[in-house]
């Protein structure tokens, strides 16, 4: 994969059903080999943007173009921990669309799923029930599922939420590997510090507040406009913390 714009969004307004636009004026590009951090408060439009990129929402204004397969990596808490599937079963879901309904998953698909689990360091737990894995391991299983989809664009919804520090470091390592392969990653996050390590940041608060390289973009004023009342403090060096509730949109 080469460094080309895999996602191009121009003056996008997105809505749910016939309702009013809940996200307005979004314009940015995501290139292969880059990670874009998507920052914003709960209800600010991060998930709405992802759903629009997946083609699940009507576009009210503007346009978007996504080149290649797009995979969505949800928060692990949104998946069913009591569902009787193993890590391998979950990774295999990435191949569900590859075969017509009358053909069973075969050795090729199972090999692809096993390889994807190996790439995220989980080959040892392939047969382990998904619900028995740690939060960080579950997140990596979901990333493996996206790899089986052979997705060039990955949309990751708060992948580090609820993950302990070693697990987070492992996931961050996986994300860097995916970036080095030329994939475009959009990572929704509340962690401003983490977002500073990405290549670009997109700040949303029902509309686009800012987009650009982290250092010049994540100013106090931008963060204040992005998080409004949820922004709590700026520390030395411009670091910020965010108070978050758990509602999503």
């Amino acid at each position: 994969m080469t460094a080309r714009a895999l996602v191009t969004v121009n003056t996008l307004d997105a809505a749910y059903g016939d309702g009013p636009a809940v996200l307005r004026g979004v314009s940015f590009s995501a290139f292969g080999g880059r990670i874009v951090g998507v920052l914003g408060p709960n209800g600010g439009g991060k998930t709405t943007l992802f759903r629009a990129l997946l083609g699940e929402l009507p576009i009210r204004r503007g346009d978007l173009r996504v080149h290649g397969t797009t995979a969505y990596v949800p928060q692990t808490e949104r998946s069913r921990l009591d569902f009787p599937v193993s890590a391998l079963d979950v990774a295999l879901m990435g191949a569900y669309a590859d075969l017509p309904w009358h053909r069973r998953m075969g050795a090729i698909q199972r090999r692809a799923a096993a390889d994807a689990l190996a790439r995220v360091g989980l080959e040892e737990v392939a047969r382990t029930p998904y619900g028995a894995l740690s939060g960080g391991q579950r997140q990596r299983v979901l990333i493996a599922r996206a790899l089986v989809q052979n997705a060039e664009v990955l949309l990751l919804d708060e992948p580090l939420t609820g993950v302990d520090r070693p697990g987070a470091e492992r996931i961050e390592s996986v994300l860097r590997d995916l970036r080095s392969e030329g994939r475009a990653l959009l990572v929704a996050t509340h962690d401003v510090g983490q977002a500073r390590s990405f290549d670009e940041v997109l700040c949303l608060n029902e509309e686009q507040v800012a987009f650009g390289a982290p250092e010049p973009t994540l100013t106090g004023d931008t963060l204040a406009r992005t998080y409004g009342g949820e922004l709590v403090l700026l520390e030395d060096g411009g670091r910020a913390a965010v108070v978050q509730s758990h509602a999503h949109s």
Partner: peptide
């Protein structure tokens, strides 16, 4: 199975 396991992400699997 995809829908039961991951209600929100299933459609993105195609």
């Amino acid at each position: 199975v995809a829908r039961g396991f991951d209600p929100e992400g299933a459609s993105a699997l195609g």
